[in-house]
Design a binder for these strands. Structure first.
Lengths: 211, 211
DNA sequence: AAAGTTACGGGGATAAACCCCCTTTTTTCA
DNA sequence: TGAAAAAAGGGGGTTTATCCCCGTAACTTT
């Protein structure tokens, strides 16, 4: 009998999915939690029943899926993490995989697939759907011609998405306006931009700045 | 015995929630569909069992929740719609309510609340959680001090979210640069902006321009 | 018909943004 | 540890953007 934990802030869903999991052979639900913090605290408590596998949501308040998975990989490497989310965005999926998730299910998968995924992760160590595999490959290809912005430049870009003038940004970053000027030119050159408006849109598109 | 239909593109969730609903007294699940189109087609078919209430997701491919609800209000006003979504954004909630939804549940509600909501909608005609009520009120309040931008100004704003200079925008709109200047000033004044960067961010926040 | 509103256009000034070429300081690492 | 690279700072000039105050034509309102 494998022990399953559910971590999802959408109570209705965890309750409902718990019902599904209980129908499967060889699986029992030992824990249902609202977020990563709750789950980690639970594991550190005395009466914790350590699960074999966790069905983990990604978008959660307090402590999100990525952070929680990273923590589990470090402190409880024997607990497998299977991500279960509506989030289809490449970067998020990849972050979860990098954090140590053994698989990533979108919430539009069928009941039978969930059972299969649970079994696969426990027996073979991982389970990836075609969709996720494609996503990962496509992302790797996209990374080829990607520019790398330096930390300081990223900081500058965030401030540039503001009504501040460059002079004000310089004061904020304790730099000379001329240095900011340098960042601006370097960033424009790297990204092929013509003006600050273009920079703002690039930053928002690439989530450097979230409006 | 009330008849319930489920419409949600996340199969795992509909299946799981169907399990929950079947546990309730007086409820049976007569239909599970992936999107609004599928459901409407089903209703128009011969062997359709007309449900008393539909649990409807909002974000769906092909035919979304708002569109479907509007259609049902017109052609099947005896079928109650209870929205069930993760979407917390005010405008979306309001759209669903306006379209004729009798209630709006976020997916983090508990099993007992779902049962209560189903019963309330069927007996009293509606069910609103505190959260949704607050949301609606807050939105009404927000609408008070809302500025109205003219058509021409909106067009200008969209072009301003571009690497074009004002002169180029003027050419594009067959106007003098000075007229554009006028739009700019009027828009800045109305929205309390300091510069073009602020305008771009406002436009994206308010979905005038989608990056 | 006088007064107001809306849309369009303009002059001229100042600040901010943009561009190219260059020096000094700091860091990196072979 | 010394050369190379990266980061920070700068001079000086052009182009945009911003701001304020003004004028005209057309169409409403009263």
């Amino acid at each position: 009998m494998y022990k399953v934990a559910l971590v999802d802030d959408h109570t209705l869903l965890s309750e409902a999915i718990a019902g599904l999991v209980r129908q499967f052979d060889n699986f029992e639900v030992v824990y249902i939690g609202l977020n990563g913090k709750e789950f980690v605290d639970y594991l550190n408590s005395d009466q914790a029943v350590k699960p074999d596998i966790v069905l983990m949501d990604v978008n959660m308040p307090v402590m999100g899926g990525v952070e929680t998975t990273t923590h589990l990989s470090k402190h409880h490497p024997d607990i497998k993490v299977l991500a279960l989310s509506i989030e289809e965005e490449e970067s998020v999926v990849l972050q979860m995989i990098r954090a140590g998730a053994k698989g990533y299910l979108l919430k539009d998968t069928r009941k039978a697939i969930l059972e299969q995924a649970l079994n696969e992760v426990l027996t073979h160590g991982f389970y990836y759907t075609n969709t996720v595999e494609k996503l990962v490959k496509r992302n790797e290809a996209a990374h080829e011609d990607e520019v790398t912005l330096k930390e300081r430049e990223l900081e500058f870009i965030k401030h540039a998405c503001t009504e501040m003038t460059y002079k004000e940004i310089a004061e904020l970053m304790f730099l000379s306006p001329k240095t900011i000027e340098g960042y601006r030119e370097s960033v424009f050159q790297k990204l092929g931009l013509k003006n600050r408006t273009g920079l703002v849109i690039y930053a928002i598109k690439n989530k450097i700045f979230v409006p």
